[in-house]
Design a protein around this nucleic acid. Structure first.
Length: 277
DNA sequence: AACGTTTCCAACCGCCTCGCT
DNA sequence: TAGCGAGGCGGTTGGAAACGT
């Protein structure tokens, strides 16, 4: 028994949105703002699931969405961020103004993956989490019947990828209390980052640290094991980060807010602020 | 022109997390 | 503290368009 669906699917429209539906949704959100997605369809006069409305708004109708081809700089940034964050599309999207996670994800799967493979670079395999959905047998059967000649080959390729190392990056929102025994690691990591920050930034960082309370000591054994695993992961990330920034001296060019190095540095700063908890 | 195959992307699905009670 | 609902996320699918034969 799974959980109840987000809404009653009975009588709900599915598939492509019509211009009229788009207009209804846009008008409603402009008047009432985002949120209350569950009740929104009824209030807006739409025969759609609330989730579907949210998705349509976020990925397509929301103002400021940039459409069309990705620039070289955007591609480059996506590749770098993906190697750093993995398939955290929403986080990656947060660094690309006007691009949605769905768009970036599609772009990655259809274009960038091919480019990387053509260049002989084996990108990180997709992680297979408990969350990841497996196609139902019914759907798999349908696919097979569709007669996609190359499909089995592709699926085998995908399986191969999945079998390889799976790197699980901790979600930034998941906070772990670091025990005193972890301080050496933290110091090492901090050193790594601090060497990349300007003196002014280090000052700011120290001020922020003063505000942060002493971390509580983790009592359960399982959580300390978890933390250890996270340490390893994070340490690997730091090494990767160093590699990514290899040759970057953070001189004037790299401190431009639009530069990839700068953005990556910002991502890492955020990451360490979270770790400091 | 007709048909089969591949590509692309909007939309869907199922699970997870968070906040509230 | 457990249970529940809403919102959010990431993987997958469906089908239209593009391409090849």
């Amino acid at each position: 028994m799974g959980r109840a669906p987000c809404c009653s699917k009975v009588g709900m429209r599915k598939g492509a949105w019509t211009a009229e539906e788009d207009m209804l949704l846009t008008n409603y959100i402009q008047l009432n703002g985002e949120g209350n997605w569950r009740s929104l369809p009824m209030n807006a006069g739409l025969l759609r699931c609330g989730k579907s409305c949210r998705l349509r708004w976020v990925n397509y109708l929301r103002p400021g969405i940039k459409r069309g081809n990705f620039s070289r700089e955007e591609d480059d940034l996506i590749i770098r961020l993906h190697s750093l964050l993995g398939g955290r599309w929403s986080l990656i999207a947060g660094r690309l103004q006007g691009r949605t996670d769905n768009e970036i994800k599609n772009h990655w799967n259809t274009n960038l993956l091919k480019k990387l493979k053509a260049a002989g670079i084996q990108p990180k395999p997709k992680k297979l989490t408990a969350k990841g959905t497996k196609p139902s047998k019914k759907k798999q059967e349908k696919r097979r019947r569709a007669g996609k000649a190359k499909k089995p080959e592709r699926e085998m390729e995908k399986d191969e990828l999945v079998k390889k190392i799976q790197v699980h990056i901790p979600k930034p929102i998941r906070l772990y209390s670091l025990s005193s025994s972890q301080s050496s690691f933290q110091d090492k990591a901090e050193h790594n980052i601090i060497t990349m920050l300007s003196s002014e930034e280090v000052d700011n960082k120290n001020k922020e640290e003063e505000k942060i309370q002493e971390p509580s000591i983790s009592s359960s054994l399982s959580s300390s094991v978890q933390v250890e695993e996270k340490e390893t992961e994070i340490y690997e990330k730091i090494q990767l980060f160093d590699e990514l920034l290899n040759g970057c001296d953070f001189s004037t060019e790299c401190l431009e807010p639009t530069s990839c190095c700068y953005m990556l540095k910002e991502v890492y700063k955020e990451y360490f602020q979270l770790l400091n908890f």
